[in-house]
Each structure stands twice: as C-alpha cells, then as structure tokens.
Design a protein around this nucleic acid. Structure first.
Lengths: 158, 158
DNA sequence: TTCTAGTATATTGTACGCAATTAATTAGAT
DNA sequence: ATCTAATTAATTGCGTACAATATACTAGAA
C-alpha cells in the first residue's frame, strides 16, 4: 500500500490566512491613509523614519524589510509628494540619506491620531492585539530562516 | 494641555507583523515551489482547483480572493506552463472555465508530498499551527469589513 | 599608488494586487 | 422583439516586491 499523502486544504493553510489577512490590512490602511496620499508601504517607511531620522536607504530597508529595488522608486515617489528628502552622503557617496521633510514632521500627530482612531474599529483590546501580534511574530520567526529541501521534479517540462 | 496622541511604533504594529510574516511565507513557498516552476499565488490557485475543478474565473477569484485583474494574466501564465486550460463557457460566453490539465492532476501527490515535507521545517505541532491560523483568521475577519473614518487632511498639498 | 574586493544604490525584468474602465454577453421588463 | 440593466472577463494604469545585474564609490593589500 502506497504511503498516503496528507491532504492540503486551502482554507486550513496558515500561509493563506496570513496572505489574506495581510491583504485585508493593506486594503484597510490604504483607505485610512488615502487622505494623506500615502500607500501602506509608504506609511511604514514614515513610521521607521519618525523613529529614526535620517537613515540611509540600507538602514531604512533593514527596518521595513525592503530592498533598494522596492525602496528607490518608492522613496522617489515620496520625495515627489514632499514627504522625504534624498541626498547623497558627502563623506561616502555610495550612500543616500533619507530624511523627513518638514511636512512629514508636522503631519506626524495628525497621522497618528487618525490611524489610532481607525484602529479602534478593530475592536480588539490591548491584550488581544498584542497576543495576536506576538503569535504572528512567532510563526514569522520560525519561517524566517527555514530552507526548503531541494528536489527534482520529473514531471513533464515545458 | 493638548490631548496626547498614542505613539505608533513600527515593531509593535499587528499590520506590520502580518505584512512581514506574509512576505516571509511567500519567500519560503517560492523556494519550495521552484522545482515545479510555480509562484505562491499560482500554488493557491492550484489548491483551489484541486478541491473544485473546473471553476469559472469568478468562482476561482472568490476562493483565492483575487480579481480578474490579477487572475487573467496569472492564469494565462499557468496555461503557458501547462497547468490549466482556459475555455469560454458554451452556454454563457461571458464566463471562462478554468480546468486542471492532466499534468496538474498527476502532479498533485508530488506537490503535496513536497510541500508537507517543507512545512515540517516550521517545527510547529498541529495544535499550535491551527491555533496560530485561527488567531490570524480572527483578526482577518475583524479588519475585513472595517471602514476607516473619512477625514480631510489640511496639510500642504502637492 | 594601483589593483582588487567589498559595499551601497540604482536599474532591469518578471509577477503580482487592485481600482477603474471597457467590451462582450445575458437576462429581464415592457 | 427591443431596450436596458446587470454580469463576466479583459484591459489599463499604478505601485509594490524581489532576484539579478550594473554602476559608482570606498577601503585595503601589495
């Protein structure tokens, strides 16, 4: 008798739950941030800079987990919208320093107030919110360095 | 004294935890599915079809939460790779039926076996895995229909 | 100094995601 | 039968994501 293979149902997959939840949160924030003309990745970029300003593209990328292929065009758009400045480092011209504009500094309280108001709609108390986040981060850490086994697929090639 | 605004720290945000976790799972699956030349969205499309074959683009989209703007080109690529067939419904020519190819039907056990093997690397027992997924789905449902309040941002416009 | 290895960012190419629009088809009311 | 509203995919446009490559610059060894 052949070894039975465990069935994989879409709605039981953790990956799909995360994938769907992430998109829904993205959609929610997109709507919440629309008045500020910010996308979600742009918002987390601002969050990082509001905590630590200025940063090089590399430093910023390590905080938000994005590489230059994503950040360079994103930051250029944010510069166009007046959120950040981009300037080559004078001492090391390989680096580009990203700094908050005055607009971004001024807008921080308004953005925080509005986002906090929106997040109240989640209707989760502090404890539940923190527990959910920690649970997600636990799984996130687990998958972070996992390396899938390499195999050969001998099916039909195209 | 002005009303203090609650601070928002990037690493404490549930949205960011989900965003990061989703990307990491995506990266993990991308590597696991590479032998089959499947991307993660293509994989969940196959999961849906393995459960229910064939489906219209609309039905498929309701299962994987993607619209035709994403699915149409994705399905065309999967057709090129020999995973699915696309055919206009004869009775209702508005609809396009997506069906599994023989290759996709044959590959199912191999894909399941390999993905199951890879998921063992997570090192989470069944209970923890299910609890994590349910926790994520709970937050996902909460955010699903939440509508952010509309406001005007009177900051500088560009 | 000059060559070389390393580092930081930008660019390129592919594949999503999704809002908004378009095009084709169908069904329903008169 | 005909006109209209609704339905379904496809298309368009914009913004991520990220691997791979290219470019520019820096620092260290000979």
């Amino acid at each position: 008798m052949a070894t039975p293979t465990k069935n994989i149902l879409l709605d039981e997959q953790l990956c799909f739950a995360l994938y769907t939840a992430s998109k829904r949160f993205n959609h929610f924030y997109a709507e919440a941030l629309a008045p500020f003309k910010l996308t979600y990745p742009q918002y987390i970029t601002l969050l990082a800079l509001w905590e630590n300003n200025p940063m090089t593209v590399r430093e910023l990328g390590s905080h938000v987990n994005l590489d230059s292929g994503t950040l360079t065009p994103l930051l250029k758009r944010m510069q166009t919208q007046g959120w950040v400045e981009r300037k080559r480092d004078e001492n090391d011209e390989r680096q580009v320093n990203i700094s908050l504009s005055q607009k971004a500094i001024d807008a921080k309280p308004e953005v925080f107030a509005h986002v906090n108001t929106c997040m109240d709609l989640l209707g989760m108390d502090e404890k539940t919110y923190a527990a959910t986040r920690d649970t997600v981060n636990f799984a996130s850490e687990r998958i972070k360095h996992a390396k899938p086994k390499k195999i050969d697929y001998d099916g039909p090639q195209f």
